[in-house]
């Protein structure tokens, strides 16, 4: 079955990994954006920035395995009017260089684009040390950062373009495995801070991003059999959150599930709950990694063991819908 080894348990057609889509988009956009420079921490063949580097060697700098310096160099390039793109594993770029992201990028509002690849547990066998599962929380905590988590090839490509055209610090989260295609070729509505409604429903809203969007759609289909019509929002931008879409969904469907490949604290679930708590509280259930590191294993097996499946979203949806005031 297609996707059986991708860890995504979907019957949908697989597309490129979001890191590949980012890499190709960056390479293509480099031609029309001479102000874009890329700094690599010697993982360009993993993050796919090497495709840009091969095409524009004069605008590509590999500063070695030194994330703190990587971020600072990017900040300096940005201060001299470059659009500086840096990419490394999500875990390393956000955790190793957090003070530099805070002090050299966020505080002065530098035009630096931070791309964290290999996010989540779906990277598989390399294990917990390589899995960025707290990156969204960390990056959302920094004032002024935009935080984007694309769900498929097309949206990652569109997000890359939007990121380069946006002036200011952006964090783009990418993943390692191939992921199901969710948007038709060349028809990806993508606006920073604006959720995409992929399916409408009146009984429940499933808010998801990254690899969880495909599972949310699968879950919504399964819930039809239980008489629950679920709306699905691809919340690709975690910050700034699409408050209007959330409040409308809360008012119109009355119950919510938030699904993300991230720890419980500080991720999309926290942002959604914070947003709705003060405007239109409804029952919410969460599908995420709770409060634990994962381990080595095949992506499929990991997602199942750590509860990131369409079945878990169905369970959560049933519970949220059942908790609504009658």
């Amino acid at each position: 079955m297609a996707g059986a080894s991708s860890g995504l348990q979907s019957k949908r057609e697989l597309g490129k990994a979001t890191r590949d889509a980012f890499g190709r988009a960056l390479e293509a956009l480099g031609a029309d954006h001479p102000e874009v420079v890329v700094v690599d921490g010697d993982v360009g063949n993993s993050t796919r920035t090497e495709w840009f580097g091969k095409k524009y060697p004069n605008r590509f700098f590999n500063v070695g395995i030194a994330e703190s310096n990587l971020v600072g160099v990017a900040a300096g390039l940005a201060a001299s009017n470059k659009t500086a793109v840096i990419a490394s594993f999500a875990a390393f770029i956000t955790c190793n260089a957090y003070d530099q992201l805070r002090m050299s990028v966020a505080y002065p509002g530098m035009n630096v684009k931070v791309v964290g690849s290999h996010a989540g547990i779906s990277i598989g066998e390399d294990g917990a040390s390589q899995m960025g599962i707290e990156d969204v929380a960390l990056m959302c905590a920094l004032p002024g950062f935009v935080v984007i988590v694309p769900s498929d090839e097309g949206s990652a490509k569109a997000a890359t373009k939007a990121m380069l055209e946006y002036k200011g610090p952006v964090y783009l989260r990418c993943g390692r495995p191939e992921v199901p295609k969710l948007y038709p070729e060349g028809q990806v509505p993508f606006q920073i801070g604006k959720a995409n409604k992929l399916r409408d429903g009146k009984d429940l809203t499933i808010v998801a991003n990254g690899i969880m969007v495909a599972m949310a759609l699968d879950a919504a289909e399964a819930l039809v059999g239980e008489g629950i019509e679920a709306r699905v929002l691809d919340m690709h931008t975690v910050k700034p959150i699409d408050r209007d879409a959330l409040v409308s969904a809360a008012k119109e469907t009355g119950a919510m599930v938030v699904a993300e490949e991230h720890l419980a604290h500080g991720g999309l679930g926290s942002v959604v709950a914070y947003t709705l708590a003060e405007s239109h509280p409804v029952p919410i259930r969460f599908v995420n990694l709770l409060d634990t590191f994962a381990e080595s294993g095949a992506p499929d097996a990991l997602l199942k063991k750590y509860g990131l499946t369409a079945a878990k979203i169905v369970e959560a949806g049933r519970s949220a819908a059942g908790a609504k005031k009658r």
Binding site: V37, N58, R59, F61, S68, N69, V71, G72, V73, A74, A75, G76, L77, A78, A79, S80, N81, K82, A84, D99, Q100, R102, M103, S104, Y107, P108, G109
Partner: peptide, 29 residues
């Protein structure tokens, strides 16, 4: 961001040289 002439926001030690490297690379580009 607030004071003209200030080239970098500093105060967390160790970060200015990297920023300087970035400016120097930008000059080359």
């Amino acid at each position: 961001k607030r004071l003209p002439g200030v080239e970098a926001s500093t105060g967390s030690l160790g970060q200015g040289l990297s920023i300087g490297v970035g400016h120097a690379l930008a000059a080359r580009v």
